[in-house]
Design a protein around this nucleic acid. Structure first.
Lengths: 188, 188
DNA sequence: CCTACCGATCGGTAGG
DNA sequence: CCTACCGATCGGTAGG
């Protein structure tokens, strides 16, 4: 923890995750940091600025490396695996921030809210392209790409809620197990 | 809408879904209903009472019929399909309430919070039994039952966020498509 | 179902 | 980083 601002952000992520953004007061945050509420404002401009930082930092993390995977010459199946693994790693490495990212983005004010929605749509489209590629190349069954992508995201995005990297399952195994279900299903 | 109390609950579900429980004030709710804030209290005891009603009503809906499926003589695959379909129907028929149920249960106070967690655990266990049965009978691949159940729930529970029953996809098709991915995977 | 109001708490500022 | 404080809003009550 190199400075106060980082400590404030980390404490905020943890409290927002536990109680939600709206139900966490600046006095709660100040107490967690160990200073008075008024003192927070020498480091940050507003409560929402913290939320903005968390949401857009996470978005950056998710995007980082995705384009590289998308434009690579991997086969679609390998691309999808790599993208899923990357996504799960970002969640696993930022579990508090991921919870805030998934739950509390709706409390962003404009124009941040619109920006956020647009980034998310762009991100989902990258996955759709990979799925479509796989269908066209014949490796995936034909199906409703939008539905499939939403299902994959659902399965991935809930992991922040239960995944504990300290247990036996590491992010690589998690990605493998999830891909196994998505790719091959439950049936023998 | 037969009475005021129902209108209050329905308005609350809608507002809680849009803004979250904590960020919705009793004055917002009163305005949505079309009365003064103080007047709400002739119909309800407190803000949290509304949340309790929504959460436990949804829990009842989810449980209804599940035991029948679980103890039926269906094959495990058919049981799982029936349970998933039932679960998706409950979400599709109560989309606002489902959103509140999944997001805002954490704002319940004790002892409701503990009761809620216990019910959810019991519900998840029913799904685990079905999966285990399927593994023992040889129809499902062996695997980490807990992980599989969490993945299935993840995929199911995100549908409230995007599923629109007015579009072409009805609840039956949705259950079929989801089961198809879960059972058979994406690959040809 | 309303008017009038309560004490508590909210996000944030002034000034040092 | 603190003390002192602001106006606004919170969930809820009294009394009719």
């Amino acid at each position: 923890m190199k400075n106060r601002k980082d400590l404030i952000h980390q404490t905020a992520q943890n409290l927002f995750r536990q109680n939600g953004y709206a139900a966490t007061s600046m006095r709660d945050l100040a107490e967690g940091v160990g200073i008075e509420a008024a003192s927070l404002y020498s480091h940050i401009k507003s409560k929402e600025e913290i939320l903005q930082y968390i949401c857009f930092k996470m978005a950056d993390e998710f995007f980082e490396g995705l384009e590289e995977i998308e434009t690579s010459d991997f086969a679609p199946e390998k691309k999808l695996y790599a993208a899923i693994k990357k996504h799960l790693e970002v969640i696993a490495n930022n579990r508090d921030a991921a919870a805030v990212f998934f739950h509390d983005w709706r409390h962003l004010s404009e124009p941040f809210l619109s920006d956020f929605r647009q980034m998310r749509r762009r991100y989902e489209n990258s996955f759709r392209h990979i799925i479509n590629e796989g269908m066209e190349s014949g490796i995936f069954k034909k199906g409703d790409t939008k539905f499939i992508v939403l299902t994959i995201f659902s399965a991935m995005n809930w992991t922040y809620d239960w995944y504990n990297p300290k247990k036996k399952l590491n992010a690589d195994d998690l990605a493998n197990d999830l891909c196994s279900i998505i790719m091959n299903g439950l049936k023998k």
